[in-house]
Nucleic acid binder design. Structure first.
Lengths: 195, 195
DNA sequence: CGTCTATTTGAATGTACTCAAAAGCGGTGG
DNA sequence: CCACCGCTTTTGAGTACATTCAAATAGACG
């Protein structure tokens, strides 16, 4: 198993996986590389995979009735990404996932995921903590969306995720923040003017 | 253990807990009743409990810098509610949780929760699925917040949660939808006029 | 170097907000 | 049983932030 993944587990649950668990995971996770701009999931299609990013960048988005995409999540190295709705409900996908850079990933499919969780209490625990952390962060993000203005949301975002700001195009960050690229451009201008 | 909770588990993971697991849970969950308008959690105070509602209603909210509360979650019968941030990170709370009606709950504290999860793989699985479902729903809600207008969000909300509309005051529903009570009132008026 | 995409800028518009106040509703006590 | 009080909902008028539409500029890629 890749060192990156092992570290991800250790950091998340504060405990190292045993050799047995590492073997179990490696048996169900497969190394896959994708070039830039590859679609990893599409609305309407059942998303059978969860991706762990070893290298590169990707994002998931939802397309609104007017055809406008809205960013749900960004993923860089050490991030997990999937269409959670489709993957966990077994329903047709509702999100698009696309690589932003050439990406190297570890992939696990539904069956593998279920088997791993059933076979290892520790790994099920890991995934519980992982999704709990994601839930907490998402709840916070939603609260902020409703509470503070776009300018402040952008400031907090760039404080929290300077790496995202470096590597992700502005119009996707705007979408993530729930505003239009024009608005983000204006916000950045006024922020720059005020130093 | 209460039948309600057992059913909640069975429905969530599609499998009945064994008698052992029921005993384990009952040993760590305690029946507690609260009158209407009781605070179950407060910002700044470590939230040590997760509440499972047997009867009654409650909601969690975040207070913004201007002192305005913003609803994070509603809970009726069979719902779980806590300050996830405080409970899982062990940090001071960021949300307020308040009962809206006299409530009967099953309560579990951090230590109990950790013990139950460590002792029973099935129950850890249950809580993983539970939080995963919550995550999926929250992601969907956030996507909608950024995609569709308030009127449509309200329509979808009342379609999805007619029971909420019945039992929860309008100004809290407005807050949940990310708008002001005045705005929701106007939205309802125009919706009523257009039948 | 040319094309395609992303970002910036301007002007007009709209959705939801603020401020303000009236009306409605529910509970309590005289 | 009614009057009063507090809280919720409704309504009105003016405002603000972000949007839309439109176009120019800048940047990236082949």
């Amino acid at each position: 198993m890749t060192e990156r993944l092992k570290q991800n587990i250790t950091r998340t649950i504060g405990r190292e996986p045993t050799d047995n668990e590492c073997v179990l995971l490696s048996e169900h996770m497969h190394l896959r590389s994708f070039p830039r701009k590859t679609l990893l999931a599409q609305p309407g299609e059942h998303c059978r995979y969860v991706y762990f990013l070893l290298e590169g960048a990707a994002y998931s988005s939802m397309v609104d009735p007017e055809g406008e995409p809205h960013v749900v999540q960004f993923a860089l190295e050490n991030y997990w990404i999937t269409d959670h709705y489709s993957f966990f409900k077994g329903a047709p996908g509702i999100y698009t996932i696309e690589t932003l850079e050439d990406a190297e990933t570890l992939v696990i499919d539904t069956e593998g995921f279920d088997r791993v969780c059933r076979a290892s209490h520790l790994l099920e625990h890991f995934f519980r903590v992982l999704i709990t952390n994601a839930f907490v962060a998402l709840q916070y993000r939603l609260a902020k969306t409703n509470t503070v203005e776009a300018a402040e949301r952008y400031l907090e975002f760039s404080r929290l995720h300077p790496d995202f700001v470096q590597r992700i195009p502005q119009y996707l960050i705007a979408s993530y923040l729930g505003i239009k690229p024009q608005s983000l451009s204006r916000i950045r201008r006024t922020l720059a003017n005020d130093h």
